[in-house]
Design a binder for these strands. Sequence first.
DNA 1: TTGTATGCGTTATCAC
DNA 2: GTGATAACGCATACAA
Lengths: 318, 318
Amino acid sequence: MANIRDVAKKAGVSVTTVSRVINEHPYVKQEKRLAVLMAMEEVGYVKNINAVHLSKGTTGMIGIVLPFIDHPYFASLLNGLAHEARVHQKKLVLFQTDYEIDHELEALELLRQKQLDGLIFCSRQCNWSVIEAYQSYGTIVMCEKMDERISYTFVDHYRIFQEALGYLKKKGYERIGYCIGRRSGSNSLARETAYRDFLVEKGQPFREEWIFDGCYDLEDGDSVVQQLQDLEKKPDALLVTSDHVAAGIMSAAGKRGIRIPEDLAVIGFDNHPIARMLSITTFDLPLEEMGRNLFRQVLSSDVSSTEISATLVERKTV
Amino acid sequence: MANIRDVAKKAGVSVTTVSRVINEHPYVKQEKRLAVLMAMEEVGYVKNINAVHLSKGTTGMIGIVLPFIDHPYFASLLNGLAHEARVHQKKLVLFQTDYEIDHELEALELLRQKQLDGLIFCSRQCNWSVIEAYQSYGTIVMCEKMDERISYTFVDHYRIFQEALGYLKKKGYERIGYCIGRRSGSNSLARETAYRDFLVEKGQPFREEWIFDGCYDLEDGDSVVQQLQDLEKKPDALLVTSDHVAAGIMSAAGKRGIRIPEDLAVIGFDNHPIARMLSITTFDLPLEEMGRNLFRQVLSSDVSSTEISATLVERKTV
DNA sequence: TTGTATGCGTTATCAC
DNA sequence: GTGATAACGCATACAA
């Protein structure tokens, strides 16, 4: 396989000159430039990019850490990330973690070893302190509310939950529960806090059984409705942190004769196409734009934070 | 930043010995091994993986070429790919092409430059001949029916379409149309051929207006139903190459009082959760397993082909 | 069991 | 404008 030295020999110039024409540097006589170009053609030159990476100390690759790809929320986010990556001629390396800390560490390790120039955490399981230790090896950005030590793009889930709860209250619902993916994670915690604060303010008791976790996909809506049926005292409204779970709930409810919103109100999240299809009241979240913003942040050398706002889309499930 | 040479000096051994303990080679005295380990600790050694890549000529990275991430079909495929990649300690580099040939070429170029050890085409727009030219630079596998010159995992879309058409015929439907993403692409072509062959066999005329393309997502079902309404002579059954489009059709049909399957029968594809939710008759496709198999093939040095079979799941839309 | 020397292919520095 | 040459950091054939 021909390398830069072969080309230099063939063209009768130095490797430096070859490097110059490859990288389109100035100060190369037209005549030599052409000789190099021809030589490259003749010997079938192909640049070995690993040598470039070694020499430069960067790779132009950004790692993306997310728990699942096969989930509309992360797929939309990834879509935005991928589009922005193209704009900047960067490549995306995928780390699907299934929320296992070991997999997250792998990504961090590759950052340390200089295989990655930066890392974007779309969601995480590990402690912030372990991530913090890796910041010196490259830019890391987060998709949740952090502090001034790191760049992040976030949605104020506390405020949105507050808004959603207030909306339901205003509409006359008195027994509100919610569905969520996992209970841990800072976004989930913010929501739980908003929920608890709301209950305290309204003087209502906190009921563990009105929080349904493990809610990620369409199918999980089924089990929520099932659990609902077994409850002595049932909620009359549900905040559902994913439109797909909300859709699953509506489907399962329909099959059991539970009327929505008469028997059970539902508010979804994300405003995915399925929400429009089923006329689900939901919060619109510009996920693709979030992805693009995260990517811009990882390329920037200064830390920044940007809040993404969600807007209520009123439809027919409340 | 400390390198292998610093460690060697600190430990009072050669770089070779350090390299041996790093890579867990045999023939290193326990005593020296410990000295090296301690030295690594002391100087804060971090392996620069780009140097390894350059030296070895491989990177352990596999490129994945697909048109859209934000689509359930490709997300499921990617899910399988990602899981199998982990098993083999390989990394995935994503190329979202939007079916633009330039983006496909970028991926091929990185294979050539040794940034990628292999490439998986989940779908493509460019000609086979351009891909073929890159095979000498690394393993390439395809997700469609090819020939013995390359490894591939495929679904026999001709046969499945045949089966689907036969099934609709048997159920008494006489005016069958279909919805598809793009008309081009070998999978699409196979389906169109099956469709045309079926019509010829049954002595029915081919009607361009019963083929609806540009059908990818939920929302596209809307426009299909709209186009349907404007048709003088309407199909009484539709083969829909994505469950999500089928779901969109059902939703739009419901809003316009079109009864399914009485006025319009629908068969979906993929057997995604939404198909179960809406009781859509569909063909089950093990997408995750397809992804895993593609990944195994890209790691293997010998060419192979494996057929993935789809099975009809009878529900309530036919 | 260990070390020396060389190769991997490019970029960057500096002298001319 | 151009060219030697020194990094970049590791793996490995070969020698000992």
